[in-house]
Design a protein around this nucleic acid. Structure first.
Lengths: 154, 154
DNA sequence: TGATATTATATTCCATTTCATATATTTAGA
DNA sequence: TCTAAATATATGAAATGGAATATAATATCA
């Protein structure tokens, strides 16, 4: 992505709006950092959506579908279809909750774990490489700030 | 979006991966900050894509299609279709460049300007509200850091 | 100049995603 | 308990998005 200009950091209401617009900067940063890693993921034969689901499930096996959807930032109906495909591939399994038979709990399979483990390693390397332009302090501050924003705008 | 846990800021390789993964935090922040504003945009009868195009064009009228696509983070073929719809709505116009008749320059129309102006105001208010949880210093540092990342991973 | 390569955009085909709604289960209240 | 409301997920139709490719214009170079 070509970022066409670096402009003032504090908005004064006059000059270009988008360049200093927080939502744009977040989207652009997310987009440009993702590009290379997503290419790598696809080369492993799994889609970006599948990677996201697997990475979340590696941390939190057995989330119900709606919780997982919130976590991976998908629409519920969308996740339901993504899970269809992943079940077909043997990456995850659906299970009904005992206490509430409406709930579908998503379990990562052994295959899923085998697929995701090396990708998590690759993601960590990629993060390190992508953030080479930041000091360790800056990176920590960035993450702290992003967490604040996420919590505040939940 | 429900952020399920706040975990350590520095990755130690053991505990949950995703919660401290930069790409996830960027995507999650982008997602949760966008939600309310995107609802507002749609209530004005324009799509999020149209808003993005108009906001960029307000700053940079007359970009060629590919440049605009890079800027708004769309695929070229996708933007071509979005522009079709926007031309039909009278929001923008296509013009061939004199110096190179392959190039299509996208011009924002007066209607487009009228539509986007109040939305830019709304976007500014929304940004201020969303970032209430940050100090002014933190917000400036965040934007500076995001710009660094965008530049480094261009 | 003529042939070839490159660049910019549009189009086609197909997968993905969303919106609205249906189905199933549970909860709350009369 | 019975009924209505609420919740969780799935499904179908329609819109959107992306990869590959077609078309058109320009650039390169023998």
């Amino acid at each position: 992505m070509k970022h066409l200009a670096q402009v003032s950091v504090v908005g004064d209401g006059s000059s270009p709006f988008v360049d200093n617009y927080l939502l744009y900067l977040l989207a652009a940063a997310s987009h440009s950092l993702s590009a290379k890693f997503h290419t790598l993921v696809k080369q492993q034969g799994i889609s970006v959506n599948e990677w996201r689901v697997l990475a979340c499930l590696a941390d939190r096996p057995g989330l119900m579908l709606t919780e997982l959807a919130d976590f991976v930032l998908f629409e519920q109906s969308h996740l339901s279809k993504v899970i269809d495909r992943m079940v077909a591939q043997g990456l995850v399994e659906r299970a009904r909750a005992d206490d509430d038979r409406r709930k579908v709990l998503i379990q990562i399979s052994q295959t899923g774990r085998d697929v995701v483990r090396p990708l998590i390693g690759a993601a960590e390397s990629h993060e390190t490489a992508s953030a080479q332009c930041l000091s360790k302090t800056e990176l920590i501050a960035l993450k702290r700030t992003l967490n604040k924003l996420i919590g505040y705008n939940g």
